[in-house]
């Protein structure tokens, strides 16, 4: 491929992406209905007990009714969502900061996310993630 073709290709790509972004702006943040609808579509056998949605509307945790070892995760990706069912072993680290929870995963396709929260909601989300990431202590015997 000659350099002119390569430069032309990059210009066309940038132009198409910019026009797409301008013509189809992403407006909708996550809300309860969108989180639960998408989670149910991906995991029809799991029963959600609610949703803890980040203040920026980009990430949500979905506690499960009858499974305390895993938690649902819904992340806005452009104008679509990505849904995961996360167990403790999937999480590399949860770092609590003033602006929320920074979560790192053992997942090449979803390496990290941030749950922007404050106050009691931050506390609840932190407790929920702690409950699935802390493994039960082994018997002393």
């Amino acid at each position: 491929m000659d350099p002119i073709q390569l430069i032309g290709s990059f210009v066309a790509i940038a132009l198409l992406a910019l026009v797409a972004r301008w013509m189809f702006p992403n407006k909708a943040d996550l809300d309860d209905a969108r989180v639960l609808r998408n989670f149910a579509r991906h995991f029809p056998d799991e029963m959600a007990s609610g949703a803890i949605i980040g203040e920026d509307g980009k990430t949500a945790l979905v506690p499960l009714v009858s499974d305390s070892t895993r938690v649902g995760l819904v992340i806005a990706m452009g104008d679509r969502t990505v849904c995961r069912l996360v167990a403790g072993a999937d999480i590399a680290a949860v770092i609590r900061k003033d602006d929320g929870l920074h979560i790192r995963f053992h997942d090449f396709t979803q390496p990290n996310t941030m749950l922007r929260l404050s106050g009691d909601t931050l506390e609840s989300a932190n407790n929920l993630l702690t409950s699935i990431t802390i493994r039960p202590a082994k018997d002393a015997a």
Binding site: F10, A12, L16, A17, A20, R21, M23, F24, G78, R80
Partner: peptide, 30 residues
Amino acid sequence: LCFAEMFYGWKSGRARYEGKDTFTSLVMGL
């Protein structure tokens, strides 16, 4: 044709694009 479909989708709502998704698709193509 991508531009044409984008424009048609913008006018009619029968096709949808997203900026980052489009960028990734085209970079993968290149």
